[in-house]
Amino acid sequence: MKHALLTLLVLGAVAGSAAAQPYSSGPSIGIRGFGVIDADAVAASRSFDAVFGSKQVTGAGGGVEVDVSRHLFVRVAATRIQRTGTRVFVDSGEVFPLGIALTMTMTPLEAGGGWRFASTSRVTPYIGAAYVSLGYQETSDGAQPGENVNERYAGAEGFGGVQVGIWKGLFAGGEVQYRHVGVPVVSTSVMSQFNENDLGGFTARVLFGFGTRPH
């Protein structure tokens, strides 16, 4: 994962260098690499709160955007979210922590695109949507064969944000996403106890990257 992100950033940097244009103006086709830090408020809030003590998780990753026209762009990105909590028992909504460590790792892969609005300043707003492939792993202390989880689920997201040119090819930005990733209900799970079957939710994202954008 780290290697992939680094590659994306380097590609973005190289593309930006190759463009060799100030951020305020550039070619009609651009390419940008970026890193992200995400703060997620998961839809399965009660389940996450039961296991991790909080419905918020944070992740990090990166991606690359390619402009296919002045306004239209495509994007791929990947992030990694990891959190350790405890296995629990749930009875009529009441949670009893059992003190058995459980580690969850989510790796959403996004592939989509969006529309960049015209702007005469350094600030460029955009909206978009993407297909999401969410990798989900769950490991517990003392788990027997078949008791850990390693699965992948499909979903979708919509997003919107702004990018701000800082200097030459450098930019930063903020973005909000709503993601829906429906998962099968497993009767012997915390999520089934709270009737929650969505591993998506709202994400607040901070981006920083390097590259060009068309004018």
């Binding site: 996450f48 059992l98 058995i100 459980l102 769950e138 517990s140 989880v149 915390v190 999520m191």
Partner: peptide, 9 residues
């Protein structure tokens, strides 16, 4: 019973 529930299993 002692092992309880995980988020997904």
């Amino acid at each position: 019973a002692l092992f309880g529930l995980g988020l997904r299993k």
